[in-house]
């Protein structure tokens, strides 16, 4: 089975106050970027896994995001990239 490298991005759901994001937003304003708004900070997770094809890899990433990588009560996730790699 081929190997794939996936990147998964986890962010707080839009309705939830992202306190670190707010703090960084204030700092960016102090730096002179006064028009910056809606700064959100999340997690960027990369992993490698074996799968029969891209769909299978996608499916596994989806399940692991739902079960562990993101907490569906407070977070959204997106599988940003999945690409085959040489084992």
């Amino acid at each position: 089975m081929p190997y794939y490298r996936a990147t998964i991005v986890v962010t707080l759901r839009p309705a939830i106050l992202d306190v670190p994001g707010k703090t960084v937003e204030h700092a960016l304003h102090s730096l002179g970027f006064e028009t910056v708004r809606n700064v959100r900070i999340g997690k960027h997770i990369t992993l490698e896994l074996q799968a029969t094809d891209v769909e299978h890899a996608q499916q596994q990433c989806h399940t692991m995001s739902q079960e562990l990588l993101a907490n569906p009560v407070i977070e959204d996730f997106a599988i940003a990239t999945i690409e085959p790699i040489t084992p």
Partner: peptide, 15 residues
Amino acid sequence: EAGLLPGALLRNAHQ
């Protein structure tokens, strides 16, 4: 996290 209680605990509002 285990789903034995509802909701979640987030970073304190004042950081």
